[in-house]
Computed example of a mutant assay.
Amino acid sequence: MRRPLMISTILAAALAVAAPAFADTTPTVSTTQAPAGQFERDRQSILAQAGQWRVRFDMRENVSFREGYEPLEEKLSAGDEIVRVVYDDGNRISLQHILVMDDDMGNHFIIKHWRQDWVYEPETVLTYAGPNQWTLTPVPADERRGAWSQTVWQTDDSPRYGGVGHWSYEHDMAEWTSGATWRPLARRDAIRDVPYDRYLGSNRHALTPVGWVHIQDNMKMGPAQGDEGEPVAIVQEDVVNTYRKVDNYDPKPGDDYWAATKDYWAGVRAAWDERIVASGGLYLEEEANRGAVTGKPLMDWAEEVQAGTLTTEAAIARARDLIARATVAPTH
């Protein structure tokens, strides 16, 4: 029996990020479209990220911009991950990542990982606005023309970050690149005592002959010293996650999990959407180990649904109540 590489590391990575119902927080789509050939090529480039993959996670801090701060050693791990299409209605595509791992005893470890939602020519995008806060940000008409937004959601379908960019096919390469956007700390940093509290990062998704690659250029930012001011740069980090198409593991445990819980997660997405639409954004307390305080209960209820010890309807009711309570900003 094959042993997955660094299971504990991958489980931790899964909790670092992810992870809308069809119409709620999904931004309104413009009726103006790029030429049909370009639009469909973009769609197929996005859909090409679905499949069965071996993923290599490579994270490394490179250059320090604060005296006395030494960049961390590189962090490498790997795992098996399936990516399934949640929905595709033309202008909107949603892809769910699910880690599928096992050990020498034949035990399976399934983790609902992050989710990426793509919207063509979005009028708004949900962006991170600093600790515990996200906002629906308007996208100017000239910036959304021919563009796609990508919104990334954490494992419990709470928000992580969003950005807007264009697919390019220059130099015989299919590549989407976002502008720089704010992002909350990933678990690998949130659980440590670090001088930064957010990232300013850009995303690149590019197809390769064997799959695709997700590249992040993150500037880790900290509060200004002394008087209040703009966040300051601490250290630059590259994250390169490569997805190689493989067929040497059984994806069925991951697909079984998704088949059993997808209706529950649809209800969870709808609950998040309603809260985001109601306030034009979201307040949600962040937690170092889970990304959000809602992480553990929402994930646990999904496991109970799959086990048959909790009905989908009852789990959704619990989720809606939890999300409603967790997204009320404290008054001072």
Rank of each mutant, 00 (worst) to 15 (best):
L47W: 04
I316G: 00
R115D: 09
G37R: 14
Y69S: 13
A16C: 03
R187E: 10
D321V: 09
T32N: 12
T32S: 14
F39H: 15
Y69Q: 08
V246A: 02
A270M: 05
N218L: 06
S64G: 14
W272R: 04
Y249P: 13
I98V: 13
Q225L: 14
R244G: 08
P4Q: 13
R66D: 15
N248G: 01
K296Q: 07
E40V: 09
S64A: 13
P138A: 10
E287F: 07
P195D: 06
A13E: 11
H205D: 02
M1E: 08
Y128D: 05
P253Y: 03
K245N: 12
V86G: 00
A18K: 09
L126F: 07
N218K: 05
M105G: 12
Q49M: 14
D255C: 09
Y87A: 08
T26V: 15
P122H: 14
E230M: 11
A259C: 04
P122K: 14
A23M: 13
G267K: 01
V55L: 07
N218S: 09
A48C: 04
G295V: 09
M105P: 01
S202I: 00
L322N: 09
A36D: 12
G280L: 08
S178A: 05
R269F: 07
D104E: 15
L136F: 06
A278N: 11
D238W: 13
W212D: 03
P138T: 11
A329C: 03
S30Y: 02
D88Q: 12
M101H: 15
P195Y: 10
R320P: 01
G130E: 03
P231A: 09
D117F: 01
V63D: 05
Y87T: 11
L207W: 04
R192L: 14
W118E: 08
Y128F: 08
N62C: 10
E73L: 14
W182V: 04
R244M: 11
T31Y: 14
A13M: 13
T32P: 09
R84F: 02
Q225W: 06
D197A: 05
T311W: 00
Q133C: 08
G130Y: 03
F39E: 11
D256I: 14
Y128E: 05
L284E: 06
Y257T: 09
